[in-house]
Computed example of a mutant assay.
Amino acid sequence: MFNFLWGVLFVAVNFALFLACYRLFGKNGLYMWIAAATVLANIQVVKTIEMFGIVMTLGNTIYATIYLTTDLLNEKYGEKEAKKAVWFGFFTMIMSLVIMQMVLVFKPAPDDLAHDSLQTIFGMVPRIVLGSLCAYFVSQFLDVRIFSRLKKAYPGRGQLWIRNNGSTGISQLVDTLVFCSIAFAGEYPWDVWWEIAITTYVLKFVISVASTPVIYMARSFKFKEEQ
């Protein structure tokens, strides 16, 4: 029960900080959030927790806000800006991966305290790294495309929830299947593989649905330089 209650607070804090980032820094804040979220998601995923008897990884909350960010960019600034944000996040993932792998190659000093911890966090299994990169690249561009299509089919301001949840629901399913296939196929029995995939997707989608009021709030923000 503690993890559930703390998890609710954790989700609320993530959303509040997202809104603050956009309110304070405008569109540039959204690109900043994408960069921070991609790095933090890959750090948090190393930690596992148990909730209602189900073991899950952290990182799903902050990762879900990436979809929230690109959908908001698509809604207010257009598909081109949303795609730019996806490339921004992808470059951030590559940059942090390359730099931190080089950091791990350095031989630590005899009294060093950080190397083992950094190895645990950033010494990722190649299949997991490849799965994360492929899943991000495919699902994020898919999310942008679907959102744009839904924007044409359901253009009403009150229909934002359809555009947001529709695009995110499909793209996160693809994200989960791509990641789990590359990272875990053959590593676990199929029943375990499906359990990992289903629980991961359900958690991501629930968080995304919970973010619906957040994207409505963020859309209402107005900035002098954009008027």
Rank of each mutant, 00 (worst) to 15 (best):
Phe2Leu: 12
Asn3Cys: 13
Phe4Gly: 02
Leu5His: 06
Val8Ser: 09
Val13Lys: 08
Val13Leu: 15
Phe18Arg: 04
Leu19Met: 09
Ala20Gln: 09
Tyr22Ile: 15
Gly26Thr: 03
Lys27His: 04
Lys27Ile: 10
Tyr31Ser: 04
Tyr31Lys: 03
Ala36Thr: 04
Thr38His: 07
Ala41Leu: 13
Ile43His: 03
Ile43Phe: 06
Gln44Trp: 07
Val45Tyr: 03
Lys47Arg: 07
Thr48Lys: 05
Ile49Asn: 02
Glu50Ser: 08
Phe52Leu: 09
Ile54Trp: 08
Val55Phe: 05
Thr57Trp: 04
Thr57Tyr: 03
Asn60Phe: 14
Ile66Lys: 02
Thr70Gly: 15
Thr70Arg: 15
Thr70Ile: 15
Thr70Leu: 15
Asp71Arg: 09
Asp71Met: 10
Leu73Met: 11
Leu73Thr: 07
Lys76Leu: 13
Tyr77Ser: 10
Glu81Phe: 08
Glu81Cys: 11
Lys84Val: 12
Ala85Gln: 01
Ala85Val: 01
Trp87Ile: 14
Thr92Asn: 12
Ile94Arg: 00
Met95Phe: 07
Met95Leu: 13
Val98Gly: 08
Gln101Cys: 02
Val103Glu: 13
Phe106Ile: 07
Phe106Ser: 06
Pro108Cys: 15
Ala109Gln: 08
Pro110Phe: 13
Asp111Phe: 12
Asp112Lys: 08
Asp112Cys: 09
Leu118Ala: 11
Phe122Thr: 02
Met124Asn: 05
Met124Trp: 00
Val125His: 12
Val125Lys: 13
Pro126Cys: 06
Pro126Glu: 04
Arg127Tyr: 05
Val129Phe: 13
Ala135Asp: 01
Tyr136Asp: 07
Phe137Arg: 06
Ser139Ile: 06
Leu142Glu: 02
Asp143Glu: 13
Asp143Leu: 11
Val144Pro: 00
Val144Ile: 03
Arg145Ala: 15
Arg145Gln: 11
Ile146His: 06
Arg149Thr: 05
Leu150Pro: 01
Lys151Ser: 15
Lys151Trp: 10
Ala153Asp: 00
Ala153Gln: 00
Tyr154Leu: 11
Gly156His: 08
Gly156Met: 13
Gly156Arg: 10
Thr168Pro: 05
Thr168Ser: 13
Gly169Ala: 15
Ser171Asp: 10
Gln172Val: 12
Thr176Glu: 14
Thr176Ala: 15
Leu177Glu: 01
Leu177Val: 02
Val178Gly: 01
Val178Cys: 04
Phe179Cys: 00
Phe179Pro: 00
Cys180Met: 08
Phe184Arg: 14
Ala185Ile: 14
Ala185Met: 15
Glu187Cys: 12
Glu187Thr: 12
Pro189Lys: 01
Asp191Pro: 05
Val192Gln: 09
Ile196Tyr: 02
Ile196His: 00
Ile198Arg: 01
Thr199Val: 04
Thr199Tyr: 05
Leu203His: 07
Lys204Pro: 09
Phe205Arg: 09
Ile207Gly: 02
Ser208Met: 10
Ser208Lys: 02
Ser211His: 02
Thr212Pro: 04
Thr212Ser: 06
Val214Lys: 02
Ile215Lys: 00
Ile215Asn: 01
Tyr216Glu: 04
Met217Val: 04
Ala218Lys: 00
Ala218Ile: 01
Ser220Asn: 10
Phe221Leu: 12
Phe221Met: 12
Lys222Pro: 01
Lys224Ala: 14
Glu225Ser: 13
Glu226Tyr: 00
Gln227Thr: 06
